[in-house]
Nucleic acid binder design. Structure first.
Lengths: 200, 200
DNA sequence: AACATTAATTATCCTTTGTTAACGGCCCAC
DNA sequence: GTGGGCCGTTAACAAAGGATAATTAATGTT
């Protein structure tokens, strides 16, 4: 089932235009295998243990990747929102069942494609490769930025950076998930917020 | 200056064979713009503020990416060794001067290429793209693993994981750099080591 | 070999975080 | 409206980490 008139496709075709110079007519084959998916808030997109290689462009909404620790606590790896990709790196890169759960934090609209299918299209039409490189590099850069925050900054500074860099997103995500992403407990984040508040 | 008979090229051509089915004769053009570089232990490869887009495959040795904090302390972002790539993501991905310093921890032998040149070769010969995807995905996966450690584990658990996953490498890197990578001070790492020791 | 430099450990004190539990606010279902 | 459940805050205590400084160990240089 394909979806030729989604906003996501238009955005991606704009990327392709910039990256490759190819117009919508030429890049259309890339989207033939894609389909739109809607998720309700709190709905699971990829369950733990899943082996599917879903790759999705987020057209609308916020999603969360997390896992359950032995003690039962959740640990949030990252959140992604409009304009970003969401996928299980365990299945796509490491070829093993997903250790993580991918879940909608809000009602979401995704443009989904199977990674293997996309990979075949890319191999047949390598002129689309710049799009893959673009997203891989962007995800790599964002990951390195997160590592940088952990290595450089205290939890308090990480939180400050988070709200100054991503104020819009922070307000769409419960604090407990932000705490987890920052590597601290919700209790500690609450204290951090209080400390910051008192300084002003 | 090119270098047609390095061990690095042989390794990379083996990757290419596996990933694309192309033999050494066919993939040779990819290495025409590459050159071998040797670094002495402690020698800087990419200085802070550099704008060059060097990309290097590490044939031998260990390298470290780090930055200097306002207080003068160093913060190590990651270390890389044989079989991995080293490059400034600030310059290549984000198109800005490098905030990081890339320095040899041991005597190193690298196979170097300018990223823009490589990019042009890839665009002309897109059948080589799987190699780029392979390395980008591997670096992304490793970065996500590091984030996972920060989000899931305590500093003590992170250190345990580090020595169990990368025992060989740990022994080639001074503890203070490991401490920095783990997000703690050298003093704290020393206490962690003592705690672990006492448990056995 | 002697010296200087750097790295790792230990000690002290202070700050921060983790843990557990209690409390209040908010939303939702009934 | 009322009763649950979830979430964020607060409190109290224990555990861990940061800062600084002193000591010891290891390394490198001449």
């Amino acid at each position: 089932m394909n979806a030729f008139s989604s906003a996501a496709i238009e955005i991606l075709q704009e990327f392709l235009q910039k990256l490759t110079g190819l117009g919508p007519e030429e890049t259309a084959p890339l989207f033939e295998a894609s389909s739109t998916v809607t998720l309700q808030a709190n709905q699971v997109y990829i369950p733990q243990g899943d082996k599917s290689k879903k790759l999705a462009f987020i057209e609308k909404g916020v999603m969360r990747a997390y896992a359950i620790k032995e003690n039962g606590d959740e640990a949030t790896l990252y959140i992604r929102w409009e304009g970003q990709l969401i996928a299980s790196h365990d299945t796509i890169i490491n070829l093993r069942p997903s250790r993580f759960i991918y879940r909608a934090l809000e009602d979401c609209k995704l443009l989904e494609v199977d990674y293997d299918v996309l990979d075949n299209i890319m191999r047949a039409k390598p002129e689309f490769e710049p799009l893959r490189n673009f997203f891989l590099m962007r995800m790599l850069s964002e990951s390195l930025d997160m590592i940088e925050s952990f290595v450089f900054l205290s939890p308090e500074e990480r939180y400050q950076k988070l709200i100054s860099d991503k104020f819009n997103i922070v307000n769409r995500v419960p604090d407990k998930h932000l705490a987890s992403m920052l590597g601290v407990t919700p209790v500690s984040l609450s204290r951090i917020r209080k400390r910051i508040q008192q300084k002003h």
